[in-house]
Design a protein around this nucleic acid. Structure first.
Length: 233
DNA sequence: AATACTTACGCGAGGCCGCT
DNA sequence: AGCGGCCTCGCGTAAGTATT
C-alpha cells in the first residue's frame, strides 16, 4: 500500500482523547492529527517520538492530518488501524500465505452470523468459504517478539468464538495477525495483559480455527505485508 | 443505615468504508 | 448523499462490596 502523498515528519507532543494527537511538524508548526487507532498503543505514544503524518485534502474532514507511523525501538511502526484489512488483502492476492492461496474470490466486510461482519471472505480453491479475521498487532516488549493484544479485548475473544462457529458449520476460518512493524519474526499472546484472550485463542484452535501471522516492511512511502511471522504455540 | 470504595457496564469519540 | 458498523478505550454512571 503506497501512501497517496508523501508523509510529513514531526515529533509527537501528546496523544489524548483516543482519537487525537498533537504533533510538532519539522517546519515548527504544531498541529492536531487524527489518531486512527483507539487502542492503548502501549509503547508507541512516547512524547518526542518521531512520527509521520499523512495529509488529506478532503474538505469534509475536521482534521487534515492523520497519524500513520511512529518510530519505536529504532523501527518504523504503522499505527493506522484502517490499513490492516487492505494490507492483508494485498498479501493474500500475492500468495504470501500459502495455506490460503489459490482462492477464486475475495470480498471484504461481508455480513455473517448475527449482526457480525467478517473482514475478508475468500472463496476457497475447493469451493469452501474461508472466513478471514484480521487483527492488527504492533506491541513489542522484547526484541523480535510481537504480542497481541495490548490490552483486554472482550470483542476479540468474541470473534474467536464466532470463527469457531464457522468451522463447526463446515467452512474454514483463519485469523490473520498483521504485525505492522518490520522487526518481529515471532508472535505470541500477551497472557499477562489479557488472559481471557489467550484462553479463547487456544479454544478456537481446538475447534479448527487456523491462525497465521505476517509482518510488514514500512517506509514513509509505503507499507507492504511481505514476510511470514512465526506464531508461537 | 450511611458512606466510601471497587467493579461492571454502556456509550461516545473522528473518520473510513461499504452498502443502500 | 446518508447511514451504520467498525476500530477500542476511558469516561460517567450504575451496581456491587466493604467499612464505619
Amino acid at each position: 500500500m503506497r501512501f497517496a502523498t508523501p508523509l510529513v515528519p514531526g515529533r509527537l507532543v501528546k496523544r489524548y482523547k483516543r482519537f487525537l494527537a498533537d504533533v510538532v511538524l519539522d517546519s515548527g508548526e504544531e498541529v492536531t492529527a487524527h489518531c486512527a487507532n483507539p487502542g492503548s498503543m502501549l509503547g508507541l505514544r512516547e512524547p518526542g517520538a518521531r512520527v509521520y503524518l499523512s495529509v488529506s485534502d478532503n474538505p469534509a474532514r475536521k482534521l487534515k492530518y492523520s497519524w500513520e507511523i511512529v518510530e519505536a525501538d529504532g523501527a518504523l511502526v504503522g499505527i493506522n488501524t484502517a490499513h490492516p484489512n487492505g494490507l492483508v488483502e494485498e498479501a493474500l492476492r500475492a500468495g504470501l500465505i500459502e495455506e490460503l492461496a489459490g482462492f477464486t474470490g475475495l470480498r471484504r466486510e461481508v455480513k455473517y452470523g448475527r449482526n457480525s461482519r467478517i473482514d475478508i471472505l475468500l472463496e476457497g480453491a475447493d469451493g469452501r468459504p474461508v472466513y478471514v479475521e484480521v487483527k492488527n498487532v504492533h506491541l513489542m516488549r522484547q526484541a523480535g517478539l510481537a504480542e497481541f493484544p495490548d490490552s483486554v479485548t472482550a470483542r476479540g475473544a468474541k470473534h474467536l468464538v464466532e470463527m469457531g462457529d464457522m468451522v463447526a458449520e463446515g467452512s474454514r476460518a483463519a485469523m490473520v495477525y498483521l504485525v505492522q512493524r518490520p522487526d518481529c519474526d515471532r508472535l505470541s499472546f500477551a497472557g499477562d495483559l489479557d488472559p481471557a484472550y489467550a484462553a479463547a485463542f487456544a479454544a478456537a484452535r481446538e475447534r479448527g480455527v487456523e491462525a497465521y501471522a505476517i509482518g510488514c516492511r514500512i517506509t514513509p512511502e509505503e507499507i507492504i505485508a511481505e514476510q511470514r511471522v512465526t506464531l508461537l504455540p
